[in-house]
């Protein structure tokens, strides 16, 4: 299980990354944490001509927190985000989700950006990005553009990034309302396995306890993290009672076309995804009400 031959360059700046990428037109690949790319290369399922190592590029590292958003630079380690007290305070759902990404040792190398670009259907970070409609900033020699999460993922393991582009940061918006709550649930076989299905929900309530804004997303059971807008719409303005939630979720199963693999079939993922949406919604509701911390 040894990688095929490749060339290696260590980039020192974002400009250099972009330059290398443009010169190598599709033959080069960025390596960040390597937690996905290295095993793929070991099995020779990926065989780039050149690896561009971005681990020394300081401008791609760091966490910035404002009232409105949490900005994470692409090459920031997952463990750094998970350990950040500020992130936990501002965006606890991200911390919660991150604790499910692999384990300590993979998080010590794996990056937030690498996970997003890798676009695994089960990836927790992608799920949260889609939930909050995070904004991905990408750079190339052609310039900079910002891609909303809704347009970032195109199918399993594929994003809408062009071959010469580098993801530089992701900006997760923070909802301002005080009565905001979130829920995150996933099911995996062993504790640190990829999720067979996952769901996240965030909602806020107005003073009368009615749902004023809501986002629901399913992962693992679809090729890319999927927003469940029909359910969201039905629940807007409701009291989020158990019955209302149940009714609003009725259409979910037919919307999902999960993939099957050795670990679970499509029916399993479909059913379990629904269960997890229900759990996530209820947790979100209780947190918004302040009755769950």
């Amino acid at each position: 299980m040894k990688a095929a031959e490749f060339d290696y360059v260590k980039a020192k700046s974002l400009d250099e990354i972009c330059l290398f990428l443009s010169q190598q037109a599709g033959e080069a690949r960025i390596i960040a944490g390597g937690q996905t790319l290295v095993p793929l290369m070991a099995m020779r399922m990926a065989r780039p001509n050149t690896l561009i190592d971005i681990n020394d590029v300081e401008e791609l590292k760091g966490i910035e927190i404002t009232k409105k958003s949490v900005i994470i630079k692409a090459c920031t380690r997952q463990s750094e985000v998970l350990e950040s007290v500020d992130v936990r305070r501002s965006l606890p759902i991200l911390s919660d989700a991150l604790s499910h990404v692999g384990h300590t040792q993979t998080r010590n190398r794996g990056t937030v950006g690498g996970s997003l670009v890798n676009a695994d259907p089960s990836a927790e970070i992608s799920l949260i990005a889609r939930l909050l409609d995070a904004e991905m900033t990408v750079h190339s020699v052609r310039g900079e553009r910002v891609i909303k999460a809704a347009n970032f993922f195109s199918s399993a393991m594929i994003t809408n990034l062009d071959a010469d582009e580098c993801l530089t940061q992701v900006c997760f918006p923070i909802w301002s309302s005080v009565r905001t709550g979130f829920g995150f649930h996933e099911t995996s076989i062993r504790a640190s396995d990829y999720a067979l299905a996952s769901a996240a929900a965030q909602l806020s309530l107005d003073s009368s306890g009615q749902c004023r804004s809501i986002s629901i997303v399913i992962g693992g059971a679809t090729e890319i993290p999927t927003r469940i807008s029909e359910t969201e719409e039905q629940l807007m303005g409701s009291d989020l009672s158990d019955t209302e939630i149940k009714t609003a979720m009725e259409k979910i199963p037919e919307m999902l076309e999960p993939q099957a693999d050795v670990h679970a079939d499509a029916d399993y993922r479909r059913r379990v995804a629904c269960v997890l949406v229900g759990r996530a919604l209820k947790d979100a509701r209780e947190r918004a009400k302040g009755s769950l911390v």
Partner: peptide
Amino acid sequence: FDGKPIRSCLIYAVM
């Protein structure tokens, strides 16, 4: 690795 446990099969020596 720099004070944190990692998997040494998932990083190339040059890195």
